[in-house]
Nucleic acid binder design. Structure first.
Lengths: 224, 224
DNA sequence: TTCTCCATTAGCCAAAAGTCGAAGACCGGG
DNA sequence: CCCGGTCTTCGACTTTTGGCTAATGGAGAA
């Protein structure tokens, strides 16, 4: 058989380890590729566009909320994606599915559930924890519009937008990406057009529509 | 007995009506003062600093999230406040209490519960819907810090900050508040200092920590 | 190959954002 | 009554943003 390739994107080494184990349990001889930040995620999905599954944490360095999910899905529509998150709010799960995830695995899940979820999604099913309904519609028009606009961005544009949402100056972004400020301005102008806004504050607000207001952030970090 | 004064802050007339009725049922001869926006809320709590209870909606024109709660509480620490919201997420309720609310009444509550909640808080108790626990800690350090900083703002500064979070230009804020742009800039500089940031994007991000990511926003608007 | 899209950069210019210092109003204490 | 503090207001000045034009090179599609 052809060797399966799985991508694990999570900034926490221990979780990557656990997820990797669940994946290798599910499929023997699988290749696991790891990412721990937005840039490494972008590189990874680009280098392995033939991957069979992406396990994606909301909230990595460089992105938070559903932005990364919406964007990755638009770049690789055929790459099945399971969101793995410390959050276990059913509405968050439904929003994740709405933004293109094939499954949602809370980090609090027993190991067996993680394996079952992975297996289900590899089989082409949608998976959420038992007892969570999926049919509710919890994405308002603004959120959907923001997701659609973000899906339209290029990799560079997405990266720059995420840095905008950290409150960085053009100069700082240029320095971190090692390009000139003129380049950043060009990207930002393109981003504004696609998002339908005309200044960075409005761009940030648009992205915030995809935010997860994570009431489980603390517990997640502590238990993680 | 001295006449009781109650403040009802909600942008929806029908809800104000219902809440008013619940209040007059609870205390006969009570004076009800209404507010339907941030400016009217600020005016009202200022004109009636001796009020006995504030019923406060999250999400009015001009504010959303816990910002208004945190700020009003800091200005009037002795004014008991019940948050009234379309949201019924237990974590949101706990966050409201954490930010100084004495109670939380979902708009979906039966009328009797609303009356009971009001009576309980007037008695000095804390009230949340049956079955909701209160002891969990769901406010992270960042959110608490943002709330503390916001609590430190003057009325004008708070108002300007909320307009910043709507993506308005200084010019637009100046026009709406009928002062010069220089004045707005001065306010904004003061806000930055108190929030510990140095540009408007970061200020907006700080405020977003107090946002309620309202999965019930749509339903709320429709049913409201 | 030609055409299009992307990334990169420069330069220019107008607008917006932010900083500083300062003046007047107000308020509470001494 | 005077003093110190805070709030609001504002103009002057500097920096950052953002829009526009234009040029280069590369990747990919028709």
């Amino acid at each position: 058989m052809t060797a399966a390739t799985f991508i694990v994107a999570d900034d926490h080494p221990l979780f990557r380890e656990a997820l990797t184990r669940a994946l290798t349990n599910s499929v023997s001889g699988a290749t696991i590729v790891e990412a721990d930040s937005l840039p490494s995620l972008q590189r990874t999905v680009d280098d392995h566009s033939d991957a069979d599954l992406l396990l994606l944490d909301l909230n990595m360095p460089g992105v938070s909320g559903f932005s990364a999910l919406a964007w990755v899905r638009s770049q690789h529509p055929t790459l099945p994606t399971i969101v793995v998150s410390a959050n276990d709010d059913p509405n968050v799960m439904r929003r994740a599915l709405r933004h293109g995830a094939s499954g949602f695995i809370p980090k609090s899940s027993p190991f067996g559930d993680i394996e079952r979820g992975i297996a289900a999604v590899l089989d082409g099913d949608v998976w959420v924890p038992e007892g969570v309904s999926v049919d509710d519609d919890v994405v308002d028009d603004g959120e959907a519009a923001a997701a659609a606009a973000i899906a339209d961005l290029t990799a560079h544009q997405f990266r720059v937008l995420m840095m905008l949402t950290e409150g960085l100056l053009n100069k700082q972004i240029a320095y971190q990406l090692d390009v000139s400020e003129a380049t950043i301005k060009a990207h930002i102008t393109a981003i504004f057009r696609k998002l339908g806004v005309n200044n960075r504050t409005q761009a940030v607000l648009a992205v915030q529509r995809l935010a997860v207001n994570d009431p489980a952030r603390l517990e997640g970090l502590q238990s993680g």
